[in-house]
């Protein structure tokens, strides 16, 4: 059933954010430390483990998960519509410079790191 897929994500979310919050307490950081990332890792590990055992999620369960993941962009759109953009615009240069410089810099790093890849290949 599709609801199983939704439930599996819910389980991963609770397990991941539980560990994230535990980590937060242990590190003395307020709130959740990487809980969403840990939850994603759980989902990857669970689905890969089941596939390796030759028992992947039933089609309908997978559909449930895919349904939620198809809502990710619309949810991000809803999220953008409830932000305090007026306040953000008073510091608009930060967003433009941070995003812009990160993008252009990352692109210029591509040839450098590709080179590591090709020398590694030729060594083989």
């Amino acid at each position: 059933m599709e609801i199983y897929g939704l439930g599996i994500i819910a389980f991963c979310m609770f397990a991941g954010t539980f560990i994230g919050n535990l980590l937060g307490e242990l590190l003395g950081v307020k709130g959740d430390v990487g809980g969403v990332g840990i939850a994603m890792l759980f989902l990857v590990l669970i689905s890969n483990y089941l596939e390796a055992k030759g028992k992947p999620f039933p089609e309908k369960t997978a559909k449930g998960i895919e349904f939620v993941s198809s809502l990710y962009i619309p949810i991000v759109v809803a999220m953008s519509s409830i932000q305090n953009v007026v306040a953000a615009f008073s510091g608009g240069a930060v967003a433009f410079l941070a995003g812009g410089l990160a993008t252009i810099g990352s692109m210029l790093l591509i040839p450098l790191i590709s080179k590591i890849g090709t020398t590694q290949e030729s060594k083989k």
Binding site: I9, A10, C12, M13, G16, T17, G35, V36, A39, M40, L41, L43, V44, L45, S47, N48, A62, I65, E66, V68, S69, L71, Y72, P74, I75, V76, V77, A78, M79, S80, S81, I82, I113, S114, I116, G117, Q120
Partner: peptide
């Protein structure tokens, strides 16, 4: 509610489905 933290995190976690461990290995060191 739709754009709040709860559903956002829930949807983000779901996108991890379909990521293959062997793809991580295939992409390799680089």
């Amino acid at each position: 509610l739709l754009g709040g933290g709860m559903l956002r995190d829930y949807a983000i976690i779901s996108t991890a489905y379909g990521v293959k461990l062997e793809n991580l290995k295939k992409a390799g060191l680089v």
